[in-house]
């Protein structure tokens, strides 16, 4: 019997996937990952999309050294 699950497909690179897996673990039992598809694809709940985008934005911003501190 074919089963259908509604959600959101996330296509990303490998580091981002690892970050999302960690995020998912940290938020237990409030997990958002429905299925780990492969190295670069995850299937998640729709409600988590904005949250993970915020978290990724934070991660990218943390990883970026602002060249203008010395003013």
């Amino acid at each position: 019997m074919v089963e259908a699950t509604h959600g959101v497909l996330v296509t990303c690179d490998i580091p981002v996937k690892q970050f999302l897996l960690k995020l998912d673990n940290d938020r237990a039992p409030d997990r958002f990952i429905v299925a780990k598809l492969d190295d670069t694809h995850l299937f998640i709940h729709g409600w988590a999309v904005d949250m993970i985008k915020d978290q990724l934005e934070k991660l990218f911003a943390e990883n970026h050294i602002d060249a203008n501190v010395c003013y």
Partner: peptide, 22 residues
């Protein structure tokens, strides 16, 4: 490129097929 690192698209995951033909 940062903008393209994560793409999300509303989707439906189909699974539980009985055979590869279907």
């Amino acid at each position: 490129a940062e903008k393209g690192r994560v793409r999300t698209s509303p989707a439906v995951l189909l699974s539980g097929f009985a055979g590869v033909g279907g």
